[in-house]
Design a protein around this nucleic acid. Structure first.
Lengths: 120, 120
DNA sequence: TTTTTATTTGCTTAATTAATCAACTATAAT
DNA sequence: ATTATAGTTGATTAATTAAGCAAATAAAAA
């Protein structure tokens, strides 16, 4: 099931160090390392604490496909799919809401210009 | 999180007795009862065995209200991609920039919440 | 009601994760 | 090369789930 890999995946996407996570959830570095490397099977409550620290749903940590780097990307469709899949379900939900809103209304450019301003 | 309640819910939907489940997963009746009643927190591997016996995804056992469409988002990804493709090239470019910004930076929810507010 | 089946609870033992400290490795920075 | 930081591993103890049996309770059937 590779829960450890998924945890690591999301942690790196969020650009968090192990140290930041373990201080957030008050866990020893040793134990956390073992979890990320699949040396031990975390309890559900532990998994819950970790997911909250990472800002993802606990179910995200069970997803089969842990996808990797978001560093450079080209403009192919499959790349876009992977990129979306790499997000947490909560984030995906938000993205989809936005996409829907875009198509329903036509206020694309105006609103997006503001978005980019905020993000940058 | 009420995992026990969810387990019981799905078991009853499938019209299975506890006995049928525990024989399928080779577990004692006592322990299984404690799990359904939340008296103990099952390990992930135990939860995995139970989910297989019930014929549901393990993530289903975490959903708040039992009939949730957790996987619906993943299944409609291609649909969403087509949606993106239907936009003009200029609009696509903007969308892609946003997606990138989302993954690279962590300001997802905050910024998007504002976007949706503007769009609506 | 009586009987039978299903589920729950108590108790003990075994197995496994959690917590903790220390030491070791890897990587990056200066 | 040295230092500093991040991550890994080993070993021990504590806490918790799992397994197993027996007994009590609940529910259903006869």
């Amino acid at each position: 099931m590779d829960i450890g890999k998924n945890i690591k995946h999301f942690r790196e996407i969020k650009k968090l160090s192990q140290k930041e996570v373990i201080t957030a959830i008050d866990m020893g570095a040793a134990q956390y390392s073992r979890i990320e490397n699949g040396k031990t099977e975390p309890s559900i409550s532990t998994l819950d604490r970790i997911s909250k620290a990472l800002g993802v749903e606990i179910t995200d940590l069970f997803s089969k496909d842990s996808l990797q780097d978001t560093g450079s990307f080209d403009r192919t469709i499959m790349e876009k799919v992977k990129l979306i899949e790499s997000l947490s379900s909560e984030e995906k939900k938000t993205i989809y809401s936005i996409l829907d809103a875009f198509v329903r209304k036509q206020k694309l450019k105006d609103t997006l210009e503001n978005v980019l301003k905020d993000i940058r």
